[in-house]
């Protein structure tokens, strides 16, 4: 056995060991670190629906326009509600007169001698006065309702945001409670990273996260929370109140994915976020506290 031969064996084995080490590093990096390519940018989308029904007389915004909280979005025809207000005012006046009359009657009867007016008549008059008082208060409440309805003919933005999918036009009839447009809350953008369940032990609330949009922009964030439930697809609701368990194959299993909510630290200048964008999420656990993966079975 010559030296030459020993060197050639050692060299070959060294290269082989290097290859094995690189493959292992890759494997650990790819399989056992908390990252996912299955992430989505999300935001709170508010369905704006008028609180009163009527013809739309003004659409004050354009599609995709940015609005501030309290800005006018839609104006519903207020003619009906003005008339209703007048009606309510008239009712208040009538009830007030009624109340006055009943109160005076009651007062008069109280002042009269018990020989002139019966006790029954006196008590009745007093009750009538109380009923008139209640009627008057009812009319006042109706007046408030009429005023509220009138003020609600102006549909205003409840948050800062962007008008999206504007599908209402002047002349449309808007129904009460029926969404006319969507408003994306501009302060509510967050990312849902759908992590495989095998990586969950590596993720904790508060960990740093790097977010890469498909267009290449990078953002930073923090793990905000981890979803505590997803739908069990192997046991959907059955019609007969018994479990409908899928017959599955034990050999191959797919890891389910759990949504992890990432709070975005700050959106850099020039980055346009839209709910629905695809995004890669890389969570970096703190270096000083390693989290070993449990044994898998």
């Amino acid at each position: 056995m010559s030296w030459k031969r020993v060197i050639s064996v050692v060299f070959t084995l060294l290269v082989f060991a290097a290859a094995a080490y690189i493959v292992r590093t890759l494997w650990v990096h790819y399989m056992d670190s908390p990252w996912t390519r299955d992430g989505r940018v999300r935001a709170d989308v508010i369905n704006i629906a008028p609180d009163v029904a009527g013809l739309v007389v003004e659409v004050a915004v354009k599609d995709n326009q940015q609005v501030r909280k309290g800005d006018l979005l839609l104006r519903i025809d207020d003619e009906h509600y003005r008339l209703a207000l007048k009606q309510a005012e008239a009712l208040v006046a009538a009830r007030k007169a009624q109340l006055q009359m009943n109160q005076e009657n009651a007062q008069r009867r109280t002042d009269l001698d018990a020989l002139v007016v019966s006790k029954e008549s006196r008590i009745n008059a007093s009750h009538l006065a109380h009923a008139a008082q209640a009627d008057y208060q009812e009319a006042l409440a109706q007046l408030e309702v009429a005023r509220l309805n009138l003020s609600r003919t102006e549909v205003r933005a409840p948050v800062d945001g962007y008008v999206t999918n504007l599908n209402v036009f002047e002349g449309d009839f808007a129904n009460r409670g029926e969404a006319a447009l969507a408003l994306v809350d501009s302060h509510s953008f967050y990312v849902y990273g759908y992590f495989e369940e095998t990586r969950l032990p590596l993720i904790r609330v508060g960990d740093q996260a790097e977010l890469r949009l498909m267009s290449g922009e990078r953002l930073s964030g923090r793990v905000d929370s981890i979803a505590r439930g997803i739908y069990d697809r192997d046991n959907p609701e059955s019609r007969d109140l018994v479990a409908d368990v899928n017959p599955t194959f034990n050999w191959v299993r797919l890891a389910r994915r759990i949504p992890v909510r990432i709070r975005i630290d700050e959106v850099p200048e020039g980055v346009t976020l839209a709910a629905g964008l695809t995004c890669t999420v890389i969570v970096t656990p703190p270096a000083d506290r390693p989290r070993p993966l449990p044994d898998r079975w």
């Binding site: 031969r5 082989f16 290859a19 690189i22 590093t25």
Partner: peptide, 17 residues
């Protein structure tokens, strides 16, 4: 080389890795 095939395979694996 001691097993040329092993060496060539390992070299390529290193490169791609």
């Amino acid at each position: 080389a001691w097993h040329p095939t092993l060496l060539r395979m390992s070299l390529f694996t290193c490169l791609y890795g």
